[in-house]
């Protein structure tokens, strides 16, 4: 504790990471919100239409019922994205880059910390730990999710189902079941999805709570508490959306889903869509 040697004060010339420490840290924080967070919200809201889409049809195709209607609406949304959103690939690549950046730096930053919830089991500390666990898990999940449902790595899908955006619901339902009906591997995939989406929603909600501190938007304890309620509400809403999407996808059999999709594809959507191929289709992410 006596004399701090001069060596402590004169570190070697700073490397890239050190030199741009602040920028990288803030980019890490920012990418979590824009574009990743914004996309997450849109994605979950869209996908939750699997559950509530029937009501979005406003009485159209009432014969499809709740699940079939959801599938129809969802297919409509997917088609819209694939057909109407400009520069889709560019958007996708940006998003993938952001996710890669957020993940790589996230892991790098997370490795600098050391969880200690065993000793200090405060709620805040548990959230700190869960933020990191959800980050690690989320990376695995997102990679699997994109690889199977976007890049068409169907060898990772039990049953080998290849994603087809014209048959978004049925191919998803098949992937989650591991075939036409539930298999053990399918159940595992479903559980993996449940954990993945739940943890990512937590990661996002908790992330925007801490971001407000990081950026100095909430300073007082009261402000942090108030913003905490907002984040919790947002998280709860997103969790509802995420779970309903999953339940929607699990609740409809692939056969029923195909009915809705064919009905849709025969209608206004069919004229535009190109022939499907497992590895080439533009897609929902």
């Amino acid at each position: 504790m006596t004399t701090v040697p001069a060596s402590a004060a004169t570190a070697a010339a700073p490397g890239f990471l050190e030199k741009h420490h602040f920028l990288l840290r803030r980019l890490h924080s920012l990418t979590g919100i824009v574009p990743i967070g914004v996309f997450l919200v849109a994605h979950l809201v869209t996908n939750s239409s699997l559950a509530w889409g029937k009501f979005g049809l406003r009485g159209e195709h009432a014969e499809l019922g709740l699940q079939g209607g959801g599938a129809y609406y969802f297919q409509k949304e997917v088609a819209w994205i694939n057909n109407e959103v400009p520069h889709l690939l560019l958007i996708e690549i940006t998003l993938w880059a952001a996710i890669a950046f957020h993940s790589i730096f996230g892991v790098y930053y997370a490795l600098q910390g050391k969880n200690n919830i065993a000793r200090y089991s405060y709620q805040g500390n548990k959230r700190y730990a869960l933020q990191r666990i959800s980050g690690y898990f989320g990376i695995l999940f997102i990679f699997y999710h994109i690889a199977t449902l976007r890049w068409g790595w169907s060898f990772l899908v039990p049953g080998g189902t290849a994603w087809d955006h014209k048959f978004a619901v049925s191919t998803l339902a098949t992937a989650l079941r591991g075939g036409e009906s539930f298999t053990a591997a399918g159940v595992a995939v479903s559980i993996f999805y449940f954990l993945g989406i739940s943890l990512l929603v937590f990661h996002f909600a908790n992330g925007i709570w801490t971001a407000a501190i990081t950026w100095g938007l909430t300073i007082s304890r009261q402000a942090q508490e108030r913003w905490g309620y907002v984040c919790a509400a947002l998280g709860a809403g997103l969790m509802l959306a995420a779970w309903s999407a999953l339940i929607g996808a699990l609740a409809i059999s692939p056969a029923d889903a195909r009915k809705s999709e064919e009905l849709f594809n025969k209608g206004k959507g069919a004229a535009i869509v190109a022939p499907a191929g497992p590895n080439t289709a533009p897609n929902i992410r």
Partner: peptide, 16 residues
């Protein structure tokens, strides 16, 4: 800079 305020992980054990 490196090791500065950005490195806080918001576990908030400190205040406890």
């Amino acid at each position: 800079g490196a090791g500065g305020v950005s490195d806080c992980g918001n576990a908030q054990n400190c205040v406890k």
